[in-house]
Simulated assay, not measured.
Amino acid sequence: MGRYTGPKGRINRRLGTAVFENAGATRALDRRDFPPGQHTRRKKVSTYGLALQEKQKIKYYYGLRQGQLRIYFDKARRTKGNTGEQLLILCERRLDNVIRRAGLCKTRPQARQGIAHAHFQVNGRTVKSPSFLCRPGDVITLRNRPGLVKLYKEIVEEVVGQPADWINSDPKGLTATVATLPSFEDVSLPVEVGQVVAFLSR
């Protein structure tokens, strides 16, 4: 199964977090901050269910498939340091996330679409893989096409939020430079990553 393309508002309500940032999905969570469904009475969620919810937050927030998340988890487990923190740092380094955190797109799905359509370059080379892991010193630019420049200048004007501290962003120039690797404190997703590690270690 590919990435999720269904109703985003339902996922935000189910997980109780704005994992999808588009206006309709965030509005759905603000209006009805309870899970979707006909019955208002909810059963107590098991430990397994809570861990599953935390894992789903990461999947939907970063637009990952189960196999991709497993690959990141295995890589994080082989890296020195806390496995959960390393997992989220790997997700933060994805090109689609960096473009979103730099303020060049309004949402991660929008950034992912732009990358797939060859709108962006890294160090002067066109990259079409949203999962490309950025490193310190990488310079992300928009391809020099008049139509793209006009489109993204309009997008940048509507972006909400400040760029991440570990990214030197120039929204007016439509460029961004990865200054350092992100730390766990830079992760913008509220998630109990310890439960995710326990879940994926089963």
Rank of each mutant, 00 (worst) to 15 (best):
F34D: 08
F132K: 10
P163S: 12
I140L: 10
D165H: 15
V187C: 03
F184G: 01
G67C: 13
L69Q: 14
R41E: 06
A176V: 11
V122R: 01
V187M: 04
Q195I: 03
K8S: 02
L69H: 13
L90S: 13
R125W: 04
T141S: 09
E21A: 09
D138K: 01
A116E: 05
Y61W: 10
G6R: 13
R41V: 06
S131E: 14
K57H: 04
N97V: 12
G67M: 11
Q68L: 12
T26I: 15
L174I: 08
V196D: 01
L64K: 07
L15M: 08
D30C: 00
N123C: 10
I58N: 00
A25Y: 00
A76L: 06
V197N: 00
V149Q: 03
R78C: 06
T177P: 05
A23D: 04
R31I: 02
G161I: 13
Y61I: 02
Q162A: 12
V19Y: 01
A18F: 04
L87T: 06
Y62H: 00
A198F: 01
H117F: 02
N82A: 07
A198T: 08
L189M: 14
D165V: 14
G173I: 13
D138G: 05
T83P: 08
Y60I: 06
G9C: 00
G103C: 12
L104H: 09
A179D: 10
L64E: 09
T83L: 09
K75G: 09
I11L: 01
P130T: 05
C105Y: 04
L15C: 04
Y72G: 04
T47V: 07
R135L: 14
G114H: 02
Q162I: 15
S201M: 09
T180C: 11
F199T: 04
V160K: 12
K55T: 12
Q53V: 08
L50E: 12
L90Y: 06
R31A: 02
Y152A: 00
L151S: 06
D170S: 15
M1E: 09
F34A: 11
M1D: 10
N22Y: 08
R125S: 10
N97Q: 11
P146I: 07
K55L: 01
N168F: 00
K57A: 09
R10F: 03
C134D: 06
I167M: 12
H39T: 07
K75R: 15
A18M: 00
S131Q: 14
C134A: 15
V187A: 03
Y4F: 15
K44W: 03
I167G: 03
T26S: 04
V156R: 04
T175C: 09
L142I: 07
A176N: 02
D138M: 14
